[in-house]
Nucleic acid binder design. Structure first.
Lengths: 308, 308
DNA sequence: AACCATGTTGCATATTATGAAACACTATAT
DNA sequence: ATATAGTGTTTCATAATATGCAACATGGTT
């Protein structure tokens, strides 16, 4: 329809997210839309307003004066809508959407009980679940492209982030059960001891993340030289490859327990043991100001009382 | 996009208009959209809100409790947008749209100078011009389907309406120049006098409206019996038919002056003369509370200083 | 010069909005 | 009891808009 002024909630949510992230890529991830669509949608909003709301350059975007003026209106309109519609749905009911990043394993093993309670208590909140390598979790939170994530606690956590441990999962070394070079090297062994020659053990490690860091630190400290056979993205893939007899690997027990291949691998002890994964939930402190994000946080706390 | 919450300005404007008119037909006219589209759009808004905003019945609609609660949010959002965007466009600038009803003739003859000034002063206001038979003008204002209209002043004007005369246009009897029965009957005559037999003059009158009323009253008072040959919608059509030699008719001078057929008709005097048309601008007093509607009203006043 | 990271644009396709026409329902007039 | 009028709803074909992939443009870094 020609001459139609286009203002809608999605445009306003895009505007608000971009004002916070100042990065089209992160905002498009956050809102689960393509970068080009985000760019186009903002251009439409700017056309309707008749002003540029953001300056763009190759380092990202920044709010213009008009954009700063628009912020108040956008917040009031979106918050007013959420409050009003939430009020219709029931006392203190919340309405809107939040995003959560998790690995496939954590989705089944950790998030399931939280989601069960969350959906019951907050039917008006739309949870956008994004799955991938948990090694990226903290980074995605840090750069604002996800509201929440399930991650392993890292010592070097930015002060802008809030972390709450839900449970601990030991890092375990797994070997294949199938007859292969690796299982032959480890025949009859329950622990990795001095008799084991690491060079005979093709090692499958994560491309990045805490499991990798802790394993490499352990190996450096114990002076063993190893043959890193493969570097893969995601613990689940490690379990698959070990099960196939391609080598040995180190993954959280949680991943083993939830793998379809768990009966094709065996756990070997390591002395000393690797430090446990402190698996928990993470969000930017600024995002926790949102009642929607806070609601999920509280459900996580309630579902894992021993964790927090 | 599934699950998308649809709130946009057009939906809000629809809601606000319907809250005022309580009639889908008038609101769809007001917003220049089809009735089915208005119905569908409101249903979408109600879906997004999760509540019925209007009860419908065969006499129209009424606000529900949820609808009443939604009113404040809708007004603030629409007014906030107009204020903000207007502010971007310049000090005191107004943004939005208004509707105006007028005959084709009045558009050229009366509205042109107003529009010229209006567009210069208020580039942010979108004027929706709706043309048709001016006899419907007052009715359309009365039932809320137009913001403003150019109309002939009527004695029986509702107190809810505001009228301002812009100029006077005499009602004139016109006869064809072409050789036909009517022109033969009037040959050599400059005035309708006692020698004229009205039964020899096929009369073309408006279906309704002030011109018709005044003509019929005049004829009743002067005791002449007439042959009403045709009843048509719109003064412009009367001029066309008279020019074609189909009969005589009574129309405002304004219409004659602006007709492409004005050189094919001649004006005959009537003693006593019919009362002039007081052509002016009309709006509901409640609509004049809108700064946009008031802005147009002020431009009309400025363009016709002798009129108000 | 090559590469990287940012955002923009062209274009084909998917999705949604739209209006004409038919429909459903109720009140009113005959 | 039947026909008509007035209200809003639904079906369906078409128009309009949104979307994402891929290519592109630009500037900074190596």
């Amino acid at each position: 329809m020609v001459g139609r002024i286009r203002l809608d909630l999605r445009s306003l949510r895009l505007f608000l997210s971009l004002a916070e992230t100042r990065h089209f890529g992160r905002t498009s991830e956050h809102l689960h839309m393509s970068l080009s669509s985000a760019s186009r949608t903002l251009q439409k909003l700017e056309g309707a307003v008749g002003q540029r709301l953001f300056d763009r350059n190759n380092r990202g975007v920044s709010l213009t004066a008009a954009g700063t003026a628009f912020l108040g209106y956008a917040r009031e309109t979106v918050n007013g809508w959420d409050t009003l519609v939430g009020g219709f749905r029931g006392e203190e009911a919340l309405v809107g959407e939040i995003s959560l990043y998790s690995s496939v394993t954590a989705t089944h093993a950790i998030i399931s009980p939280i989601i069960e309670q969350f959906r019951r208590q907050y039917p008006g909140i739309d949870l956008k679940l994004h799955t991938g390598d948990q090694a990226q979790a903290i980074d995605r939170i840090d750069r604002g492209s996800e509201d929440l994530a399930i991650a392993a606690h890292s010592a070097a956590l930015s002060p802008e982030l809030q972390f709450a441990v839900l449970e601990y999962s030991p890092l375990q070394l797994i070997a294949p059960l199938v007859n292969c070079a690796a299982s032959k090297s480890l025949i009859g062994l329950e622990y990795i001891d001095a008799s084991v020659n690491w060079m005979d053990l093709p090692l499958i490690v994560a491309e990045r993340g805490l499991a990798r860091e802790r394993l490499l630190a352990w190996l450096a400290e114990h002076g063993n030289e190893v043959d890193i056979y493969a570097q893969v993205s995601g613990h689940e893939a490690i379990v698959s490859m070990v099960a196939l007899g391609l080598g040995v690997g180190v993954v959280p027990a949680l991943v083993i327990e939830n793998s379809p291949h768990r009966e094709n691998v065996r756990v070997l002890g390591m002395e000393p043991a690797l430090e446990d994964f402190a698996v928990g939930i993470c969000a930017r402190k600024s995002r926790l100001e949102s009642p929607l994000v806070a609601a999920f946080w509280e459900c996580a706390r309630a579902s894992y009382p021993r964790g927090f």
